[in-house]
Amino acid sequence: MHPVVFNPTLEEVLNFVGTFVFAVSGSLLAVRKSYDIVGMAVLAVITAIGGGVIRDLVIGAVPPAAFQDVSYLWIPLLATILTFFAHVEINRLRAAMLIFDAAGLAVFCVSGTAKALNYGLGPGAAIALGTLTAVGGGIMRDVLAHDEPAIFLPHSELYALPAVVGSVIVVFIPRLPLNNSIAAGLTAVFVFVLRLLALRFGWKAPRPWRTTRQEESDES
Rank of each mutant, 00 (worst) to 15 (best):
L28Y: 06
L29A: 08
R32H: 06
S34F: 14
S34D: 15
D36W: 14
I37V: 14
M40A: 12
A44I: 01
I46T: 05
T47C: 01
G50E: 07
G50K: 11
G51K: 04
V53W: 01
I54W: 10
L57W: 12
V58R: 08
I59M: 04
I59K: 05
G60V: 12
V62G: 02
V62E: 08
P63F: 07
P64N: 13
P64D: 09
A65N: 10
A65F: 13
A65Q: 10
Q68H: 06
D69H: 14
D69C: 03
V70F: 15
Y72V: 03
Y72K: 07
W74L: 11
P76Y: 01
L78V: 05
L78T: 11
A79Y: 07
T80R: 01
L82M: 11
L82W: 08
T83Q: 02
F84N: 00
V88N: 13
E89W: 14
E89M: 10
I90C: 08
N91G: 13
R94H: 07
R94E: 14
R94L: 14
A95R: 14
A96V: 15
M97H: 09
L98E: 09
L98A: 12
I99P: 01
F100Q: 10
F100K: 04
A102L: 06
G104F: 03
A106V: 13
V107N: 08
F108Y: 15
